[in-house]
Write a protein that binds this DNA or RNA. Structure first.
Length: 213
DNA sequence: CAGTCGATTCACT
DNA sequence: GTGAATCGACTGA
């Protein structure tokens, strides 16, 4: 039988661990987005770990800036960034505080509020594509920089909350190189996903952009 | 202060 | 499979 998802919020201690422990443990957890248009539940199916100043692929690699300040704060908070002039992506900060490590939420399954997500993701050809990819996920959940710094461990009146959900067994967790990460950071197998899940996004290697002039 | 590029997505061939 | 879209952050001078 299929266990019903646990609606208990994850404690902050869950996130106050090394990012490589937290990342695979987030698979199968449920992110709740509440807002004026209605609630959405997202079952997390794909993530990537970014390990602060030690990680050439991380936004925190060259230290604290105005954009990435939340990464240096307490675990369990949301780091949202804007990229390619069009898209937002969301992360969950891990521990210990100050290490600036975080997990990028790359894909998930919409388990509640699909009708609302479809309105925000008009180009999706089917429901499996609603949150297949980090920017699609943020679009489906209407996450932008206004939510940067949100505490995802506090259930009361928070627009974003992480629930216990139904964690997947280790045998169901696969790992590989991170998508679109350039240089040395691209070598680490720090992308984690649920085996055979249809909402997981395809892998793409980093492609350097062609020069304009 | 100008140049470069991005933890991407979509339309089109 | 290829290229465009689009702008803010960051870098180095």
């Amino acid at each position: 039988m299929i266990a019903s998802p646990d609606r208990t919020p994850l404690a902050r201690e869950f996130f106050d661990r090394p990012v490589l422990e937290v990342a695979p443990d987030l698979l199968g957890r449920v992110l709740v987005r509440t807002g004026p248009d209605g609630p959405i539940d997202l079952r997390i199916t794909e993530v990537e770990a970014y390990d602060g100043a030690n990680d050439p692929g991380s936004h925190a690699y060259r230290g604290r800036t105005a954009r990435n300040g939340v990464m240096f704060g307490p675990p369990g908070h949301v780091y949202v960034y804007f990229t390619y002039g069009m898209w937002h992506c969301m992360n969950l900060v891990c521990g210990p505080e100050g290490r600036a490590s975080a997990v990028l939420l790359r894909a998930g399954e919409i388990t509640r509020g699909a009708e609302l997500a479809r309105k925000r993701r008009v180009s999706a050809r089917n429901d499996k594509e609603l949150a297949k990819g980090p920017a699609r996920l943020a679009t489906a959940l209407a996450v932008d920089r206004a939510l940067d710094g949100t505490d995802a461990c506090t259930s009361d009146a928070s627009p974003l909350t992480i629930l216990t959900g139904t964690p997947v067994s280790p045998e169901q967790v696969l790992s590989g190189p991170r998508t679109g990460v350039a240089g040395d950071g691209g070598a680490h197998p720090w992308r984690f996903w649920i085996a055979n899940d249809p909402t997981v996004s395809p892998y793409r290697a980093h492609v350097p952009r062609r020069r304009s002039t």
